[in-house]
Design a protein around this nucleic acid. Structure first.
Lengths: 209, 209
DNA sequence: AAGATTACCAAGCAAGCGCTTGGTTTGTAA
DNA sequence: TTACAAACCAAGCGCTTGCTTGGTAATCTT
């Protein structure tokens, strides 16, 4: 048990123990983190396997011992982040009962994913979709469907309780755009906290009580 | 004056006459339209100059008679679409006086840009920013600032009239994301009109009166 | 300690990339 | 008709790309 390593959340650690995602301090985990950062900064296409190798301190050819090809690295980045964030959302939902509170929990959760440690991977998930071959897209889509169902069912609840007016499917899509776009302008070091931003986003979606 | 050509809006035609943008039926104009379509579908990096040549029916090398390099084509796509849409927004604003109506006019205008004929170019403007070299980014940024100022000043007006609660800068950013994301899900052939969608987006931003 | 497996390096190949070159065709105007 | 420039073609150059290969070092298992 290494000492100087960043503490994982309980949910994250559980996924590592189950072998569903790679530990962030493993060889593969560090590769995926580096890949996510590079893919976000320069885009998937502009990032070469030589860039990736250099980022983790190995030769470019050695990457293909871990993954069969470059696209598989992109796919792994996406898969891991969506699996992780689905778990985090489930956990956040289970801690709230009021429909409006649940919506806020989802917004907060998604913002923290986008603006926090997994932000690079989340950005890649949103912006590099086209670079996946169709087969991979279908696989990731299955995972996204699970994630989106959490959103939709929560928004339906909120609508039934009268706090939401708009059609849940359309509201979710508008929110998806509004939240994912924050990666292009929000800066942690500014004087707007993620929590404040989450509450502002909530006012877009929910009627004042 | 060719006969069988799609009629341009008066604002668009004026820009062509001034030489600010290329006529859509000129050689350069058709190249830019094809480039926008390909860049949107496959991404800038995955689109080769051979793809571009084939799309307009010339050899790839002949492209460089019109533009000095591939990046200049991307830049031209972005410049033309933002200049055009800035004009369209100005025209839309001049036809409305009520602050809430002005906000709706901007939303409608942006949605029509994103979902209509210039949609490919607008998408490229949003998603291919990283592929511009820094010098080009700064040039385009000047044009974007003009465009964004129309939005911000209109939202400030709306806030002063009491119809908007949120900080205009943040509201604009959330709206930018929500509206630009529509390109990923909205389909014209569905049973939701752009006008309906615009009104829904308006309810996100504006308090019921 | 022995053996097996995993992780890696050094070198380089085949293909595709943006772009250049030298020359030919097409359009325009006197 | 002639002159000239703009538009284009055919060919290919130099470079970078993702990936492969054959071998070596490190790590794990028993």
């Amino acid at each position: 048990m290494p000492k100087h390593q960043k503490q994982l959340s309980a949910d994250h650690q559980a996924l590592v123990d189950q072998g569903v995602v790679n530990a962030p301090d493993s060889a593969k985990g560090r590769l995926l983190q580096a890949a996510a950062t590079l893919f976000k900064e320069k885009g998937y296409e502009r990032t070469t396997v030589r860039d990736l190798g250099k980022a983790v301190g190995i030769q470019s050819g050695s990457l293909f011992h871990h993954y069969p090809n470059k696209e598989a690295i992109l796919r792994a980045v996406m898969e891991e982040t969506i699996i992780l964030n689905t778990e985090l959302m489930k956990a956040a939902l289970s801690q709230n009962n009021d429909p409006a509170e649940k919506v806020l929990a989802l917004i907060r959760c998604e913002l923290e994913s986008i603006l926090g440690d997994t932000g690079a991977a989340m950005t890649v998930l949103v912006y590099e979709w086209r670079s996946l071959k169709e087969e991979s897209q279908l696989e990731i889509l299955k995972l996204r469907d699970i994630y989106e169902n959490l959103w939709i069912s929560t928004l339906i609840e909120a609508k039934e309780s009268g706090r939401v007016v708009m059609d849940p499917a359309i509201l979710r899509r508008l929110l998806t755009g509004a939240l994912s776009w924050t990666v292009n302008w929000y800066r942690q070091e500014g004087n707007l906290s993620v929590e404040q931003l989450a509450k502002m986003a909530l006012t877009l979606a929910i009627k004042p009580n």
